[in-house]
Nucleic acid binder design. Structure first.
Length: 186
DNA sequence: GGCCAGGACACCA
DNA sequence: TGGTGTCATGGC
């Protein structure tokens, strides 16, 4: 068992299973992935609750909302003007993906304005169950703290995790969630 | 009452 | 490629 695996086990015993991503649908994961950018999850929950209350948490409904309406609904998540515009763009991509009945590529998600690497990987992993390890600011601190890796670029970290762990979607999901939980405590 | 969150992008040198 | 400004609300 390598160092990654033993740390994982201790995180799991300390914090318990995180069961990410909390959502009622695949599309809700996509929405949450965008809204949570540099934003406390509590605020994202408020925005998603607003969308549900307005019965707007569905791709076609988001597209049909006036931009100002959408802005008001997602306001608690912050950066709401940017996010409203970008959520519509991402939703168009989501519809296209579902229409062709195929899995999304990382490249096409990254081509959507407002979707960077972490958001793309979160969607690939948590919405589409594809084995991409999500890297965030906590993950880099985590690596430094445990002297696991001292890289620079996002993809260096991602490839390091992916080559150090068994290629398991449930493991990727849980490990990233546990790192975030760890990050909140330090 | 300030600090910051489950980032991304534009612009500059 | 590296550094900095911008976007913005709400929790603690």
């Amino acid at each position: 068992m390598n160092k990654f695996h033993s740390i994982y086990k201790s995180l799991l015993s300390e914090f318990g299973p995180q069961q990410w991503w909390p959502a009622d649908s695949q599309y809700e994961v996509v929405v949450g992935a965008l809204l949570t950018q540099n934003t406390n999850w509590k605020n994202v929950e408020k925005a998603i609750a607003n969308l549900k209350k307005a019965k707007a948490l569905a791709p076609q409904k988001i597209l049909r909302l006036e931009k100002s309406e959408l802005e008001q609904l997602i306001k608690p998540s912050g950066f709401y003007r940017q996010k409203a515009a970008r959520l519509k763009l991402l939703t168009e991509k989501f519809i296209e993906i579902k229409r062709r009945n195929a899995l999304p590529s990382r490249e096409e998600l990254l081509s959507v304005k407002g979707v960077g690497k972490e958001t793309a990987d979160s969607i690939l992993l948590y919405a589409f169950d594809l084995p991409y390890f999500v890297i965030d600011s906590y993950t880099k601190r985590f690596c430094a703290h445990h002297k696991l890796f001292n890289g620079k670029e996002y993809d260096d970290y991602r490839e390091f995790f992916e080559s150090s762990l068994p290629r398991s979607v449930p493991l990727y999901k849980e490990y990233h969630a546990l790192i975030v939980e760890w990050g909140k405590t330090i």
